[in-house]
Amino acid sequence: MQAFTRHTGLVAPLDRPNVDTDAIIPKQFLKSIKRSGFGPNLFDEWRYLDVGQPGQDCATRPRNPDFVLNQPRYAGASVLLARENFGCGSSREHAVWALDDYGFRAVIAPSFADIFFNNCGKNGVLPIRLDAGVVDRLFAAVATQQGYALTIDLPAQTVTTPAGEVFGFDIDPFRKHCLVGGLDDIGLTLQHADDIRAYEARRREEAPWLFG
């Protein structure tokens, strides 16, 4: 997993609440058995005017000029600014793989759906919760300022605006540890293999029917 420490990136605003993972990556692209290559189909139904199919060359597809990611001023954005309950719905990790593949390193929103939030952390994409009032102000600032970029410092848990205003955010210590180090949490869990075996032995006594 790619480590996340400090990142400064152009902000793209996606101004709608309850963006679900079906919208982030539509179902026809979930047929892939790979983990990569989802970026061109990120927000496919909003981004293109035709219906996308897996394996298509997206470069030649008609784009929806109104969709935020198609506006030249947001080309190369790596921080997505979103509204409440971002990533709700399906558990598909493909949604995070698509954001990552597109080039987003962080998503800022007032709230996230739980499964999506977890999936982000497993892929080096940082989900940042900020107060709805702060998010409102960021939306207003992005709209008025071309090239609006934010600096995210994970070790310090801060988001800094171009004007130097600093907002702190919360993150679980364990998630932070994994993200900052780019660590594989399976490897970490396997360091406790003896504890898992001890639990299983105890459980097998208490509830033998759970073991076949």
Binding site: R35, E93, V96, I115, I186, T189
Partner: peptide
């Protein structure tokens, strides 16, 4: 509860998940 694919792999490899209580 539902999990993402990385967690699917985590359960396959360890029979456990790292969780915070809701």
């Amino acid at each position: 509860f539902g999990i993402g694919t990385s967690e699917v792999e985590h359960v396959m490899a360890t029979q456990c998940l790292v969780q915070k209580k809701s």
